[in-house]
Design a protein around this nucleic acid. Structure first.
Lengths: 254, 254
DNA sequence: CGTCGGTTTGACCATACTCAAGGACTGTGG
DNA sequence: CCACAGTCCTTGAGTATGGTCAAACCGACG
């Protein structure tokens, strides 16, 4: 198995040492890689939820379609993310998920997840934390939608993406690739595509942000974070800290 | 221990049979009941997260404070809810939590949660599902904020509360108590208090919704659900169905 | 070279915000 | 029993942010 097929194992090793059993449990989630094209749907709203999946390569998003034909995007997924964790509770998917670029996904059945619950409390904890992180991202977006101007919304979202990408590619500084059209951004931020365009123009004229095709450039990060009122704590991954808590006093653990 | 002190056990029994060990694990979460007054804070944003808590009686909400003094409420908690599940990942609380009425809470340390992970895969599954449900509610609210008018927002939120309350008090029909001021509703919905007032007036004049103090009356539920574009699937608790899935093929379980 | 998706720009409009004043009700102390 | 403060709600007038519609543009790609 190639390393690029073991996104999750790599990801999790970042948080805690894995023994063989654990590595196997995780690797089991990525046993069925499958290439998918841009805009391909992984599943649809209301359909029976048979599998989750790991996004090994490419970008995806979950969304809800509205009656009037518009949609609200709820989450953007990056390589290494587990997609569908939040759809775990109801047996039907609450959201549709579609690719935003071409990529590689690995579907796996719920059963693998419950296997992890029964076998490894440590992995369970990490999974719980991952779900929590996704929720934190959504909470932040809720704040964004409710209490910020279009300008702040756009800036804040760019900051979020910038930071999330830096976590896996620490060499990113003030330039990065953002394969999202203005229509997609509008669907994320609850704005119209036209207004997103105007907002980009505004930011460009002020020299705060340049965007060309999918290329983003932020000349002065600090100034830009300021526009967005961006605070990064909600993305802080203190999972490893959390695990320490368990291991230190949790003699019952393994 | 009185039954009213074992909110969670009662709640969980709704989903699956509990053996003694499991009941004890859950009861452990409610060992330290504590009465709290209206508006009392359970914890504050950015503070070190030492405990979660079970809300045994009363209503509470989590929120994020903005620089300009306003706030965005993220979640409303009802009796029986576990508060802070989403704050599990980062060691600091990402949101403040305050009571909306007087009530009773039971704080418990993270350790209890990880104990459950190590001991009972079934409870773990249910907890995971509960976290998922809370996320589903937030997702729905995100849709609400991004893609609906003030009128729909207000109506939708009332519907959500109506349904959530009915789950624990099935005798509620078209009248119920909603102890939330218009300012609080505004903070939930990303509107101004003034506009919430106008919206209520509009709905009242159309005979769709009456509100007096904290009393809500919905003369025609179907018509009202229609105004809200409300679909109840996201609140459907299919946890029990999910557990069946585990038990049926999961011979490893217990 | 023409088509297509994505973007830009303008003109106009609507939804919801702000500010401000007044009203209704509750609880308090005289 | 009344005066008062305090909270919550209502209503009006003016404004602003962002939506809609429509046309033109631009670069990619067949």
């Amino acid at each position: 198995m190639l390393d690029r097929d073991r996104c999750l194992v790599r990801n999790f090793k970042h948080y805690c040492a894995l023994d063989e059993t654990e590595a196997e449990l995780l690797a089991a989630l990525e046993k069925t890689p499958q290439t998918v094209s841009n805009a391909q749907m992984l599943w649809e709203e209301n359909h029976f939820a048979e599998t989750l999946c790991v996004l090994s390569e490419g970008w995806a998003c979950s969304y809800r379609s509205m009656d009037d034909g518009t949609r609200q995007i709820l989450n953007i997924f990056l390589p290494g993310d587990v997609v569908g964790l939040s759809d775990f509770s109801p047996r039907r998917h609450l959201t549709s998920v579609a690719m935003l670029t071409e990529g590689v996904i690995c579907r796996f059945p719920f059963k693998n997840l419950t296997d992890i619950f029964t076998t490894s409390p440590r992995l369970t904890t990490v999974l719980f934390s991952l779900a929590g992180q996704q929720q934190a991202i959504m909470a932040e977006r809720l704040v964004n939608m409710g209490r910020r101007t279009a300008r702040e919304k756009v800036a804040h979202f760019i900051c979020e993406m910038h930071l999330r990408l830096r976590k896996t590619c620490p060499d990113i500084t003030h330039r990065f690739n953002l394969p999202l059209s203005q229509q997609v951004l509008a669907d994320v931020l609850g704005l119209s595509a036209v207004h997103v365009s105007r907002t980009f123009s505004e930011l460009r004229e002020e020299g705060l942000l340049y965007r060309e095709r999918n290329r983003i450039e932020i000349p002065d990060l600090e100034a830009f974070y300021d526009v967005a009122n961006f605070s990064d704590i909600y993305l802080g991954d203190s999972i490893s800290e959390l695990l320490k808590l368990i291991e230190n006093d949790g003699s019952t653990l393994r």
